[in-house]
Design a protein around this nucleic acid. Structure first.
Lengths: 222, 222, 222, 222
DNA sequence: TATGAATGAGGCTTCATTCAT
DNA sequence: AATGAATGAAGCCTCATTCAT
C-alpha cells in the first residue's frame, strides 16, 4: 500500500525519455505489486487491469503477452533503480580511493540496504521467477550479476594488495560477502519483512564480514 | 534424473507407518519433481498423474485438492528427512559435548550440505511457495525455523560461555551463521546448481564463519 | 434440419471400429452443420458445444484445437462416404465391363448426384475452407482428386480404344466431364439448393456430356 | 503482387465520379487482397489499415462497419469491371448480329476468361462470402446473375431459331454453358491457379460446348 | 479529415475437480 | 480402490469499434 506510490516513482525513474504513458506505468507497477503478492502465475491479467484502472485489452497494447509484462520488470529495474539509485552512488563509492576497507564495506552495505528496501517488490518478483524463465535468468546473469562480481573482484584485489584482506581467491571472497549481505537483506526485507530489525544488527553484519575476511583475522596465522 | 530414485526413497522415509501406498508415493514424488521444475501454479494435475502413472482422479483420492498436495510436501519432509537425516545426526552433533567450536561448525556445515543436496527439489518447492501460502509459512516457521534457531541458540551460548565466540547477541550470531551456510548452499545446490563448486570452497566458508565470530577476531578489541 | 439425422448417420459410417463415442459424433456433426451455415471462422466453439449438448471443454478432449475439428471433417468423409457410398458403387461401376459409354456415364452421374446430395454440408465446408488451409488442400488433392482423375483417365482410355469417345487428351476430357457434373451438382445442391430442379435436367446434362465428347460428335470431322 | 497495381486500377474504374479518395481506394483494394488471401473473418481491420497505410480509425470513416467494407466490393465490381470490362464488350458481342454460334461462343469464352483473370481476387472474395451473407447473395443474384441469364436466354433463342442449337430448354442450355465456362475458369484462375493451363485447352472447351449443344449433335436424331 | 489509444465483449483453450462405472 | 470422461469456470488474448485530439 505504502509502496504503491514509491513503486510508481521508481518506475518513473526508468522513464527519463518519457516513453511510457501514465497508463503504462500504472500497468507495470500494478503488475509488480500483484506478482510480488501472489506470484506471476497466480495473477490474472484481469486483476492487473482492475488495479491499474485500465481495460484488460489495454495491457496488451503495451505488452504483447503476459510474459512480456514480466520481462519488462527487470528492464525497468535496470533502467531505473540500478543505474540511478545503485550505480550512481556505487560509482562514487568505487571511484573514491578508499584507504580503509571498513569504510568501503560500510558504504556498500548501507547502499545495498537502501537499494533492496526500495526495490523490494521488484526484487521479489525477479527472484521468484528466475528459476522458471531461462531467458530471464541469462539476462540477469549477464547484465547484473557478472558485471557486479567483476567490479567487486577488482576492488577486492585492490584491498588485497594493500594487505587489508585475507588471502582467499577473490571470487570466493566476493561470494561470501554477497551471500552475507544479501542473505541478511533478503531475510529482513523480502522473505520475512515482519521480522523486527535491530538498529545494531547492520553494524554486527559489518563486523562479521570484516572479521571474516579482514587481514587481522586468524587466517593470517594459518 | 538421478534424484528421481532418491526422491522416492526420501519420501519413503516418511512412510515408516506404511500409511502411503506406492501409488501415493509416486504421486507425491512426481509432484515434487514437477513443482520444482515448473513451479506449483504452472504444473497441471494431469501432468502429475501422467508422470506418476495413475489416473487423474486418483490424485484426488489421496489429496482433496491440488493445494493439499503441495502442503503434503513439507509434511513429508519433516516426517522423513528432517527428523531422519537431519535431526538424527544433528542430535548426535548436539549431544556430543564438543570442546571445540571449529569442530562443531565443520560438522554442522557438512551435515547441512548433505541435507540440502539430498532434499534440493523439496527445498526448492518450499522456498518457492512459502511467500504465497501463509499457512505454509507459519507451519514451516513453527516446526522448522524456530526450533532450529532455539536449538542453535543454546549451543551458541555454550560456546560463548567457553569464551570461544565473540560477544554478539546469540540470535544475531545464529542469523549470520545460517545466512552464510544457507546462502552458500542455496547458491550452489538450488539456485545455480550448474556453478562449479571447488573442493576448497567449503573450507573457506568455514574459515570465514570462524573468523567472523571467533573470539580471536578483532571484535574482542572493540 | 432434415440433414441433422442423416449427417449423424453419415458420420457413423466412418465409425465402423466404434472409435467415436456418441458425444464425439454429436460434436463433429454439429460442427459440420454450423460451419456449413456460418463458415468456420464465424462459428464459435461455444455454439458447437451448445448444439452438441456437451460442455465446451469436452470438444477439446476429442479435438485438441478448433482447427483439428475442421480437419476431422474430410477424414470422416473419406472414411465414411467416400469409401462406403462412393467407392462401393463406384468400383462396381468401374469393374462392370461396360460396352456402352452412355450407360457408364449415366451411372456415374446418378452415383455422384446421390453422393453430393447426401454429403452436401460436408462438401460445402470443405469447398469453403480449402483455399485457406494448405494442409487441407494438399490432403484432398492427394487422397481424393488425383486418384479420382487417375481412375477416370484409365476408364476414358478404355472407351477411347473402343472408338466411343472423341480424340482429346484424356485429362482434358476428365476435366470437362468433372466440371460439368460437379458444376451442375454444385449449383443445385450446394450453392443454390432453393433453385428448382427439373426431373429432366439430369437427363439433359447426360446428353450434353455425351454430345460433347461422344465420337459421333462433329469433332470427328475436324 | 502483380495484381496489386491492377487491383487499384480496377477499383479506380469504379471511381469515374471521383467520389473515392486515394485513401479509400487503398483501403478497398487492401481489403480485397487480404480477404481473398485469408478470408473475410480471418482478416483483422488492423491489417487492412496497415496494408493501406492509414490509421485504423480511418477505415471506419469510409465504411461504418467491417461488413460494409465487404459489401463495397461487389458494388465496386459492378460499377467498374462489370459494366466496363464485361458489359462494354459484351454488349458489342451481343449486338453484333452473329450468324454463327461458334464465333459467338468463342468471343464469349475469351471475354469471360479475360474478365475472370483480371478480377480473380474480387471474384474469390465474393464467391467465398456469398453463402454467408443473404444480402450479398440477393444483390448479386439480382444485379448480375439474373440479368445475365436473361440476356443469355434471348441470345440462345435467337440461335435456336436459326436451327444452330439443339432443342433443350433455354435455361437449361444457359446453365450448362455457364457451368462449363465458369467451372473451367474457376478451376484454372481461382481454385487452383497453380495448375498448368494448356493453350489448346480453351479450344477444347469451346469444341466441347459446341458439340454439347450444337444442332449437328446426335440429339437431333433422338 | 485523420489519427491511434482505449475499450470490453467474446473467442479459444486449459485445468482442477467430480462422478458414474 | 481406481479410472478417465465430462464439466464449466476462468485465463489469456484478439479485434471491431469509438472518441478525444
Amino acid at each position: 500500500m505504502i509502496q504503491k506510490k514509491s513503486l510508481k516513482d521508481l518506475i518513473n525513474l526508468s522513464n527519463m525519455d518519457n516513453s511510457m504513458t501514465e497508463k503504462q506505468i500504472n500497468i507495470l507497477s500494478s503488475a509488480i505489486e500483484l506478482f510480488s503478492e501472489k506470484g506471476y502465475e497466480a495473477t490474472a491479467t484481469s486483476e492487473i487491469a482492475k488495479k491499474a484502472k485500465v481495460a484488460e485489452g489495454t495491457i496488451f497494447r503495451y505488452y504483447k503477452t503476459k510474459k512480456d509484462l514480466l520481462f519488462a520488470i527487470p528492464i525497468a529495474l535496470s533502467k531505473a533503480s540500478l543505474f540511478e539509485i545503485f550505480l550512481e552512488d556505487f560509482n562514487e563509492i568505487l571511484n573514491d580511493n578508499h584507504d580503509n576497507f571498513e569504510d568501503f564495506l560500510r558504504k556498500i552495505v548501507i547502499n545495498r540496504k537502501k537499494f533492496v528496501s526500495e526495490t523490494a517488490p521488484i526484487l521479489k518478483v525477479i527472484i521468484q521467477e528466475i528459476p522458471f524463465h531461462p531467458e530471464l535468468r541469462s539476462k540477469i546473469l549477464n547484465t547484473v550479476i557478472f558485471p557486479s562480481v567483476k567490479n567487486g573482484t577488482s576492488i577486492i584485489e585492490r584491498f588485497k594488495a594493500k594487505g587489508q584482506i585475507v588471502d582467499m581467491p577473490s571470487t570466493t571472497i566476493i561470494n561470501l560477502i554477497i551471500t552475507s549481505i544479501f542473505g541478511y537483506l533478503f531475510i529482513h526485507h523480502i522473505a520475512l519483512p515482519e521480522l523486527p530489525e535491530n538498529e545494531q544488527d547492520i553494524e554486527y553484519l559489518i563486523q562479521y564480514i570484516l572479521n571474516g575476511i579482514g587481514q587481522n583475522s586468524t587466517l593470517k596465522n594459518t
